[in-house]
Computed example of a mutant assay.
Amino acid sequence: MITLSSHVLDTTKGTPAANMALCLTTPDGKQITASTDNDGRCKNWGDIEFTPGIYCIRFEAGEYLKAEHGKSFYPFVDIHFEMQEDGGHYHVPLLVSPFGYSSYRGS
């Protein structure tokens, strides 16, 4: 079974990025919209059954950063990643500030 979660942290404030809009694109092009909860986490992707393939999460960072900091260099951040049959749980965190971001495969 393949599962997916994400977590967004605002590195300028040192707090979770609550209510950031996300859009997951599946290998077959289906798009699922979601948003982070009050702890900056997202694991609710509807009733999707994940299959192996290349996915993308679009983090609508610009809207969030402008609301929180008044500016943002990045209108959005796209993170493409590949899920494999035996990959188990995938966690895709985003560390973001108005002028920088980073990500990694979490646990």
Rank of each mutant, 00 (worst) to 15 (best):
residue 26 T to F: 01
residue 26 T to M: 14
residue 26 T to A: 14
residue 27 P to E: 11
residue 27 P to F: 10
residue 27 P to M: 10
residue 27 P to W: 11
residue 27 P to K: 13
residue 28 D to S: 15
residue 28 D to H: 06
residue 29 G to C: 03
residue 29 G to A: 10
residue 29 G to R: 13
residue 29 G to Y: 08
residue 30 K to H: 09
residue 30 K to Q: 14
residue 30 K to D: 11
residue 31 Q to W: 02
residue 31 Q to V: 09
residue 31 Q to D: 08
residue 31 Q to A: 11
residue 32 I to H: 05
residue 32 I to M: 11
residue 32 I to C: 11
residue 32 I to R: 12
residue 33 T to S: 13
residue 33 T to L: 10
residue 33 T to G: 06
residue 33 T to N: 14
residue 33 T to D: 14
residue 34 A to V: 08
residue 34 A to K: 01
residue 34 A to T: 14
residue 34 A to F: 13
residue 35 S to K: 15
residue 36 T to K: 03
residue 36 T to E: 13
residue 37 D to V: 10
residue 37 D to Q: 04
residue 37 D to C: 06
residue 37 D to H: 03
residue 38 N to H: 07
residue 38 N to V: 09
residue 38 N to F: 03
residue 38 N to P: 01
residue 39 D to I: 03
residue 39 D to W: 02
residue 40 G to R: 01
residue 40 G to H: 00
residue 41 R to N: 10
residue 41 R to G: 04
residue 41 R to T: 06
residue 42 C to Y: 04
residue 43 K to A: 10
residue 44 N to S: 11
residue 44 N to I: 00
residue 44 N to L: 00
residue 45 W to S: 03
residue 45 W to N: 03
residue 45 W to T: 01
residue 46 G to P: 08
residue 46 G to K: 00
residue 46 G to C: 09
residue 46 G to Y: 03
residue 46 G to I: 12
residue 47 D to V: 01
residue 47 D to P: 00
residue 49 E to L: 09
residue 49 E to S: 12
residue 49 E to V: 13
residue 49 E to I: 11
residue 49 E to Y: 00
residue 50 F to I: 06
residue 50 F to C: 03
residue 50 F to N: 08
residue 50 F to Y: 02
residue 50 F to G: 06
residue 50 F to V: 04
residue 51 T to G: 00
residue 51 T to P: 00
residue 51 T to N: 01
residue 52 P to N: 04
residue 52 P to Y: 04
residue 52 P to S: 08
residue 53 G to W: 05
residue 53 G to I: 02
residue 53 G to Q: 02
residue 53 G to P: 02
residue 53 G to S: 01
residue 54 I to H: 01
residue 54 I to L: 02
residue 54 I to C: 02
residue 54 I to N: 04
residue 55 Y to M: 03
residue 55 Y to S: 05
residue 55 Y to K: 03
